[in-house]
């Protein structure tokens, strides 16, 4: 117990040290004026506090979170559902796997301009941008999770008279859960990329608006604060999901 607490304290120490090093470097680079568009860390923090205080950050995130959450929810339901279906049905597998293998490696951002052209510059386009980027990895991970199920467990279930439904519900789905969850985490990371692209490319709203606006009037500390905040939020969210994943599905309970 004491040992683990010391290890925890240790981790916090190194975390703070690594932040301190990075921020000191940033500050120095800003002070030396490497580039007019590169403000020191302290200015960025001040800008961040100003924006947090006047509510512009909160307002931006309120609008940024909409396409992200809606798009991610769609992927979570439809994407996971389709991935599972792909894993269970040989025909669907045969039809879709090559397509998703290609989509997963492909720069899906390329179709964002087309999405804008069809659906205009509203919320729909931004949701679609998130879906298009996040879906392939979510579908593929769900599919792989289903297909990687230990065949010996399936045989065991059949030997003890499990029906096909029972095999799916009691063996395959629990076995795939960890991988599906990991897919959702990777999908969310792609979703963040998608929402940023959408808000920078389609029309500036939310955090994309903050970035574009402050960069156009050369308020670089504000712009850096906005960029830093979205990276921070994405990192914290995904890290939290990773920890949750390790808690829900400890490696030793996954089997193989």
């Amino acid at each position: 117990m004491a040992n683990s607490r010391r290890a925890g304290g240790d981790r916090v120490f190194w975390l703070l040290l690594s932040f301190a090093c990075a921020f000191a470097l940033w500050e120095a680079a800003g002070r030396f004026r490497l580039s007019a568009a590169f403000p020191p860390f302290s200015d960025t923090v001040m800008a961040f506090l100003r924006m947090a205080a006047d509510g512009s950050l909160a307002k931006a995130y309120l609008s940024t979170s909409q396409p992200l959450i809606i798009g991610f929810a769609i992927c979570g339901v439809v994407g996971v559902g389709f991935g599972v279906w792909m894993g269970l049905s040989r025909t669907v597998e045969w039809l879709s796997v090559p397509v998703f293998v290609i989509l997963q490696a492909a720069p899906m951002a390329a179709v964002v301009p087309l999405v804008t052209y069809i659906y205009g510059i509203g919320l729909t386009s931004k949701v679609l941008a998130v879906v298009v980027l996040a879906a392939p990895v979510i579908v593929m991970n769900s599919y792989k999770g289903i297909r990687n199920t230990n065949s010996s467990l399936i045989q065991m279930c059949r030997a003890f008279l499990g029906t096909r439904t029972q095999v799916v519900v009691k063996i395959i789905l629990p076995h795939a859960a960890a991988m599906i969850f990991a897919g959702l985490r990777l999908g969310l990371a792609m979703g963040f990329i998608g929402v940023v692209i959408a808000e920078l490319l389609i029309t500036p709203t939310g955090i994309g608006d903050l970035i574009t606006y402050h960069s156009s009037v050369a308020d670089f500390p504000e712009m850096f604060a906005a960029v830093g905040s979205i990276i921070l939020i994405a990192a914290v969210t995904i890290h939290a999901l990773e920890r949750l994943e390790r808690r829900l599905f400890p490696p030793e309970s996954r089997g193989s």
Binding site: L15, L17, S18, A189, I193, V196, L200, S215, A235
Partner: peptide, 26 residues
């Protein structure tokens, strides 16, 4: 490893696309 590891973990899953405007500025 301990000092840089944190940052590698942050940026490996962060939306790097948000950095493009920064790069454009610099």
């Amino acid at each position: 490893g301990r000092i840089l590891g944190t940052w590698v973990n942050v940026f490996v899953s962060a939306p790097i696309s948000a950095l493009v405007p920064v790069l454009m500025g610099v």
